[in-house]
Simulated scan of single mutants.
Amino acid sequence: MKYKRILLKLSGESLAGEKENGYDEKILLSFAKQIKQLHSKGVQVAIVIGGGNLFRGLSGTDAGIDRATGDTMGMLATIMNGLALQNFIESQGVPTRVMTSISMEEVAEPYIRRRAIRHLEKGRIVIFSGGTGMPYFTTDSGGAIRSIEIHADILAKGTKVDGIYDKDPMKYEDAKKYDEISYEEAIVKNLKVMDATALSLCRENKMPIIVFDATKEGNMLKLVEGYKIGTIVK
Rank of each mutant, 00 (worst) to 15 (best):
L29C: 15
G93H: 06
D153S: 02
R56F: 00
P208F: 03
V211H: 04
Q92N: 15
K36D: 07
P135Q: 07
E180D: 13
L85A: 05
I35M: 04
S103N: 15
V224D: 05
V193R: 01
K216P: 04
K41S: 12
S40G: 10
L76K: 03
T139F: 01
T139I: 07
R67N: 06
Y3S: 07
S129M: 05
A68I: 05
Y227W: 15
F55A: 00
K228W: 10
R124G: 08
R67L: 03
G74H: 00
N219V: 07
S200A: 13
E109V: 08
D168L: 05
V126D: 04
Q44I: 08
K19I: 08
D62C: 11
G64P: 03
D195G: 08
L8E: 02
R115M: 08
D24F: 02
Q37K: 14
L15M: 09
E106K: 15
L54F: 04
F88W: 15
R113L: 10
K189F: 10
L120G: 01
K157N: 07
A116V: 09
F55N: 00
A144G: 11
F31I: 11
A63R: 13
I150W: 04
F212P: 03
M194N: 02
M170I: 15
G130S: 11
G57T: 02
Y172C: 13
D179A: 14
A196S: 12
D62H: 09
K36M: 08
S147R: 09
K222Q: 12
G123T: 09
H119T: 10
G12I: 00
L15N: 02
I148W: 04
V43W: 02
D174Q: 08
N190A: 13
A116F: 04
K41A: 13
G130R: 00
G131R: 00
E90L: 15
L15F: 02
K2F: 12
E13V: 03
P95L: 11
D140C: 08
N205R: 12
K192F: 03
M207E: 03
E225F: 04
G82M: 09
G230A: 04
L223M: 14
I89S: 01
S129I: 02
T78F: 00
I145W: 03
